[in-house]
Design a protein around this nucleic acid. Structure first.
Length: 485
DNA sequence: TTTTGAGTTGTTCGA
DNA sequence: GTCGAACAACTCAAA
């Protein structure tokens, strides 16, 4: 009798609820499910209805579609499939668990306020149904609550945060793809009305199909992430510290959208970079490795800030910025969005973003500074545009970085740091290759003036007039920021 | 307990 | 041409 009960209980499946962890390798929830010996149902819920959950932007929706398709393909290759649902997750997941007579639901944690509330509600409902609910850390090197100052408060300064993080210990070795995956392959949630086909989510644009530039620049999903990582480690890690600021050199990792959707994990990057560094004899190995890891550190710090400041995407971390006299200027905002400000480094960056769904890190800082300081437009307008157009639009990184540039953040740039778009262009794109790639108007312009084309007179008539003059705009910004007292 | 110094990414000005 | 100072206020850890 007892053994019969045991056997029938083991026949109950476990649901792995996938979210921002669309990968098979180093997926703690999936590995735990594999180890518990049950049949595994992999489920994804497209939830745009839960209170406070921010709908994805267009570029991120496009990425999500590909990542889900790749995940489904990978699961089918192993005899399973991905069950896609639509609806309120705190209803759908318990319903799916009941329909499938699941014994447990496992997932990897999220850190935004609304997402945590959803997950908490799911856990409460499951427990009431006497279904096991377990969550894991698959998204971060360090849990946000595990790193504290000497007095027990959250850090507000990056360097101290990162030093303290090292004190917590080395991130663990990443998990492999589970060796034995007993995957469910039947129809998903027979009794459920929330099951849909991936195409039903309409995540990809159709009319018009604006995603051509995205498709030709990115291979979404886990295999694409591994290929991109290998390329970066082989070709660019050895020059990372020296060249990562030069947008024409492609020396950055371009792994951000993969991290955003969990097509790869930070632990995998941490250890793969170390292995690659150990295998080389090139100069500055240590500096390159530490520089790359500190960029992962900034991602950790952003999640730390998000966790401890749930409203980071909408509220100034420094409340004195609530008094900032932001300008309302629809024409200037549109010029910035469309890459028609008349400053080549700004316009090239904004067109790269529009075309590829991504922008080089150095250029992101310059365009953000330009919007907030030269145009005196609220950082939230810029944050929203990036949220809609970036394939890596991340709830933590995007908001924290905009607040950093604006000066309203926890450990923000000083107010008087106003990037000069001409000097930044000349310093980091000295021969103008980057701006010419995105601005055909500047074809043939000498590198000596390519970042200040207005000095050519009528020779570049096709190129936009400057919408503000740097010196005047800089002074206006300094006055406004100083006025915050 | 108090003090001190350092802190991702810069620019301008005047000597 | 180069070079140092000034441009705030606050956080955090070490002394």
């Amino acid at each position: 009798m007892a053994t019969e009960v045991l056997r029938s209980d083991l026949e109950r499946p476990v649901i792995v609820w996938l979210r921002d962890d669309l990968r098979l390798s180093d997926n703690p929830a999936l590995t735990a499910a594999a180890n518990c010996g049950r049949r595994i149902i992999c489920a994804f819920v497209h939830d745009e209805e839960s209170e406070g959950v921010r709908p994805l932007g267009g570029a991120a929706r496009w990425w999500l579609h590909g990542a889900l398709r790749e995940m489904d393909d990978a699961l089918r290759g192993l005899g399973g499939r991905l069950c896609v649902h639509r609806g309120v997750a705190s209803v759908v997941i318990p319903q799916l668990a009941a329909d499938s007579e699941a014994a447990a639901v496992y997932w990897n944690r999220r850190y935004g306020a609304a997402e945590r509330h959803v997950d908490e509600a799911v856990k409460t409902t499951l427990k009431a149904q006497r279904i096991e609910a377990r969550s894991f850390n698959g998204h971060l090197l360090y849990e946000p609550w595990s790193i504290k100052t000497g007095s027990g408060t959250p850090f507000r300064v990056f360097s101290a945060f990162w030093r303290a993080a090292h004190g917590v210990g080395e991130p663990g070795q990443p998990l492999g793809v589970p060796a034995r995956l007993n995957l469910f392959h039947g129809p998903c949630g027979q009794a459920s009305t929330t099951g849909v086909e991936l195409a039903d989510l309409a995540l990809e644009p159709t009319s018009p199909d604006w995603a051509g530039g995205l498709r030709s620049n990115w291979r979404r999903g886990e295999a694409g992430a591994q290929a991109r990582l290998e390329f970066f480690l082989n070709e660019h890690l050895h020059e990372y510290a020296d060249l990562r600021d030069f947008p024409d050199r492609s020396a950055t990792s371009r792994l951000s959208p993969y991290l955003r959707f969990g097509n790869i994990s930070p632990r995998q990057l941490w250890h793969a970079a170390e292995a690659a560094a150990n295998a080389t004899t090139s100069l500055r190995v240590h500096q390159n490795l530490e520089k790359f890891r500190s960029e992962l550190g900034w991602r950790e710090f952003s999640y730390h800030l998000l966790y401890h400041n749930p409203e980071i995407a909408t509220q100034n971390l420094q409340s004195k910025f609530d008094q900032m006299p932001w300008r309302s200027d629809a024409d200037a905002l549109r010029a910035w969005q469309q890459g028609k400000t008349g400053y080549p480094i700004i316009d090239a960056g904004m067109r790269e973003l529009w075309t590829t769904g991504w922008m080089h890190n150095r250029v992101r800082m310059v365009v953000a500074s330009f919007l907030v300081k030269h145009l005196l437009i609220d950082w939230r307008q810029g944050e929203a545009w990036f949220w809609d157009t970036l394939v890596d639009a991340d709830p933590a990184n995007n908001a924290a970085s905009w607040q950093w540039v604006a000066g309203s953040g926890a450990d923000a740039a000083p107010y008087f740091r106003v990037f000069n778009p001409v000097l930044q262009g000349e310093k980091f794109d000295p021969d103008g290759r980057y701006v010419k790639r995105w601005l055909p108007e500047l074809d043939g312009v000498s590198s000596s003036v390519v970042h200040r084309p207005w000095q050519l007179g009528n020779n570049v008539e096709a190129y936009a007039e400057r919408i503000v003059e740097h010196g005047l705009a800089r002074q206006r910004a300094l006055d406004a920021f100083k006025g915050l007292g």
